[in-house]
Amino acid sequence: MKLSPDETIFWQHGFITINLTIVTTWAIMLVLVVGSVLITRKLKTGIHISRGQCILEMMVTFMNNQIKEIGLEKPEQYIGFIGTLFLFIAVANLCIIFPWYEAPTGSLSTTTALAICVFMAVPFFGIVKSGIGGYLKSYLKPTFIMLPFNLISEVSRTLALAVRLFGNIMSGGMIVAILLSITPFIFPIVMNALGLLTGTVQAYIFSILATVYIAAAVHDSKPSDKKLQVQTNNKEDKNG
């Protein structure tokens, strides 16, 4: 029994391995990009828009609002990264309804890769926002004594991200496989439905946590008065 799609190898040449994880990821990427191109090809800027565009805009606007609510001022800067995280994980997880499909998120290599991306993105956005000095200073807050703890939290939360997603998705796939051998008919379907829910929730959790980390990095690297002002603004936005 294979625990990970990594173990299904199509082609290997030394270090380079083309396995099921990579192939599935490419397929998902293709679907996402082609779908985006098809949908956005007919976008209108008038007052009357098509239903598809309306749904698409609702989704994008919802993501924007989520990012804003977490505390990032300009969601347009982060939606590329955070939105793609969510879309990729959600699509990868929801495709389990197709038979013989194995989610790439069920591979620890994929989740690790995504966690590493978040791990890199946090300082990236922090530095973009307030420069290298400003970002590095955030590790010394509230005092320099906290520096080691800040560093540990940085690494540990990345690890937690990777393992959480991997565990959830892999376990879902495993449960379905085990149940299939025990009760072959109705029960695996129920578990699969549960798997859809879990997959969506995991996608949401992953992207929200990434947003929170980025937001923390962006806020920490700012002067305290500005932070206060931003919080006040956010409250006003919510009230409004």
Binding site: D6, F15, N19, I22, F88, S107, S109, T110, A113, L114
Partner: peptide, 12 residues
């Protein structure tokens, strides 16, 4: 699989 990790990072 570290190659897969790298490939996935690039893919992402």
């Amino acid at each position: 699989n570290w190659f897969t990790v790298i490939a996935q990072v690039i893919n992402f």
